[in-house]
Design a protein around this nucleic acid. Sequence first.
DNA 1: TCAATCGTCAACCAGATGGTTGAATAAGCC
DNA 2: GGCTTATTCAACCATCTGGTTGACGATTGA
Lengths: 110, 110
Amino acid sequence: MTHPLDATFAALADPTRRAILSMLLEDDMAVTDVAAPFNMSLAAISKHLQVLADAGLISQEKRGRVKWCKLEPDALRAASVWMQGFGQFEPVNLDAFERFLALELPDTES
Amino acid sequence: MTHPLDATFAALADPTRRAILSMLLEDDMAVTDVAAPFNMSLAAISKHLQVLADAGLISQEKRGRVKWCKLEPDALRAASVWMQGFGQFEPVNLDAFERFLALELPDTES
DNA sequence: TCAATCGTCAACCAGATGGTTGAATAAGCC
DNA sequence: GGCTTATTCAACCATCTGGTTGACGATTGA
């Protein structure tokens, strides 16, 4: 009925949820740890995570009493592809980003 | 207060609004002509166009009694590029990425 | 001048959203 | 077993959203 992009974009429209995605980009996290930086109840974060999971942007796996949250970039990629097809935007220039990083962070070579 | 991506993604979350953007990709259109294919009142379409304009995705210019709607792809491009931070990269320094984008997209408001 | 057209405004409505609190479920620890 | 931790559930609330209808101001054209 409703297009999957509806859920993807709606999920991305909330800054708390985008922040959660940023955190999960670093590493998988438990619900409680996701909630820690936010000035908001655990239940609220739990709901946000449900929205992200329903949109396919994350997956959740329960091990023991801890529920682990993991980024699922495919849904994001679908939305990204939609937008690029839409405006025939060229993808961001990753080489330029790497040069930017090299300029900005001369010490932290990986 | 609220991040401009909030408005962009919220605007994109509605299928009617995405359809309107597709139509405007072909050509600029008057409000009445935008509304024609939809099974929905003119007032509803007018509100959708306002949402798109508030998000910076379109601009509207009134000439005579006709208001012309024009696609403004910059906001879309900003969102597209933001998503590539998740969709294409392995773990990445998002703060650095956003600073990089600020340089690449100087027009897309704070 | 006067009617038709273009678009918005205002009021209203149902349902979704984002948050709270407190109780409940489930798993681990001593 | 009984406390503690992890997470969700349920009820509730205020606000936002997406739609309607009808009235309205502005512009056009006969």
